Simulated assay, not measured.
Amino acid sequence: MRDVIDAVADWTERDETFALATVVRTSKSAPRPPGAAMAVGINGEAVGSVSGGCVEGAVYHIAQDVIGDGTPVLQSFGYSDDDALAVGLTCGGIIDVFVERITPEEFPELADVIHDIRNGNPVAIATVVEHPQRARIGSRLVIWPSESSGTHGSSELDHAVIDDARGLLASGESGVLMYGPEGERMETGAKVFVASYQPKPRMIIFGAIDFAAAVARAGSMIGFHVTVCDARLVFATPARFPAADEVVVSWPHVYLQEELNRGTIDNRTVICVLTHDPKFDVPVLDIALRLEGPAKPAYIGAMGSRKTHDDRISRLQQAGVSQRQIAELHSPIGLDLGGRTPEETAVSIVAEIIAERWTGTGRPLRQLPGTVHSHSL
């Protein structure tokens, strides 16, 4: 719902009924991940996408029917070998889309959920999308780390879903959970889709240089909460980095240690060291590369020439950073795209971050066999 939240918030403020279509399951080369959403207003306006255009027309018509009669629909879309012009995914993927009607009476917690999503507070919505008892389909639980609201019509099912959904929420994952009709483990019959909303992952850029401004724009575009940090007051200003969520004046290693003490560094955090000056980058990398467990960043990259890289590695080794830890460093930072400008360099950096997240190869897709989209988490 995050990608349609502005429209959903407007309709909610006006107490309007609307339909919400959500991708709950994908396979093969599905173009959108679980959680991707399309919303249709009572007056016919539509926002968002569940397939990048392949099946939006069919989903739109289902949504209009759902607004009218209130009956939720779980619909599977896939490529048709018999009729290539049939409604389906010509990319060869398969998606399951759940379409439900949303009204103020049926979803009284929605305003709170919208507030939490917008303010980076963790919250999950668990919706029954399949059940032997049709009356339970569409029932939902809203789950926060320490409380919940709503019911699936069975205390046993509620307890099972709440426990499992909190596990998904902690890891920032969305997906379908399967149970017996009353929440029995190791049984089937009931499917519950959990949409998890965690705060945006962090991108911390050390070094207030022109390349950092471009990386901040690219990082914000792909969904990061971006921080730019530099010890030099004259360079670290919000005016120079309008795309950053925050600009901090501090020595990089001091700021990173403070954030570690606050518990704001986690396995989704991305660290880009663009200072290419040993007095700045070696101390901060000394801290970052030693991190383990829940505080270990998803990606650590450092900018610099081959000569700078070799000197940096030597200094890190002298500081006691192990070879295994040094191997975690992406340096020189980015993929080889042949770019030169700050903007082109930023593309190469975020491309490497994306490839690291989804275990991509960085090679042209035309050279690779198999499906286009990875399903790694």
Rank of each mutant, 00 (worst) to 15 (best):
R315V: 08
V142S: 01
P181Y: 10
S149N: 07
D281F: 05
I326P: 06
Q133V: 14
S250I: 00
G167R: 12
V47F: 11
I5L: 07
Y255L: 08
A355S: 15
S29K: 01
V113C: 03
V192K: 03
D281G: 05
R32T: 14
L274T: 14
V228F: 01
P297T: 13
A355V: 11
V176K: 04
L285A: 07
W144G: 12
L168R: 04
P33F: 13
D10Y: 11
T361L: 06
D158W: 09
G68C: 02
K191T: 13
T227L: 06
A19G: 09
R14W: 04
V23H: 05
Q367H: 08
N261E: 13
C229Y: 03
G223C: 01
L260P: 04
P278A: 09
K296N: 12
P342D: 03
V47Y: 09
W144F: 04
G68P: 07
T308H: 12
F211N: 06
G57V: 14
M178Q: 11
E106T: 15
S348F: 07
T341W: 07
F107G: 00
A19Q: 08
V23F: 05
D96Q: 03
D83E: 06
T308S: 10
E328Q: 08
Q64G: 11
D6C: 02
Y197S: 08
V176L: 10
R14D: 14
E16N: 02
G304W: 11
P297V: 10
A288S: 07
G44K: 10
V226M: 00
L285K: 04
F235A: 00
H309T: 13
Y179K: 08
G263F: 00
R136I: 11
K296A: 12
T12M: 02
S171L: 09
A111G: 09
I95F: 07
E13F: 04
H152R: 10
D6P: 10
S196Q: 07
R363D: 08
A239I: 11
S149I: 10
I5C: 04
D286K: 15
A213D: 13
R340D: 10
T103R: 00
R140D: 09
T359S: 06
W11R: 01
I42M: 01
G35I: 01
H309R: 09
T22M: 03
V273Q: 01
G120I: 10
I222Q: 03
I205M: 01
C91K: 02
F211S: 04
V4E: 02
G189H: 13
R166D: 01
T26P: 06
R32E: 07
L335I: 15
V228L: 00
A84N: 07
C272A: 14
E343S: 14
R101Q: 07
R366E: 09
S196F: 10
Y299W: 06
E344R: 01
G339T: 15
D286L: 05
V284K: 04
H61W: 05
V372W: 12
T17D: 07
E344H: 08
V161R: 04
V215G: 05
I326Y: 02
R340M: 03
P283V: 11
I62T: 14
F241M: 03
R14Q: 11
T269L: 00
P294S: 09
C54R: 01
H375T: 14
S331Y: 09
D6K: 14
D82L: 00
V254I: 12
V176T: 15
T371Q: 06
K200Q: 12
P31I: 14
V59K: 00
L274A: 11
A124I: 12
E106L: 04
G150W: 10
E259A: 08
Y197L: 03
A302L: 02
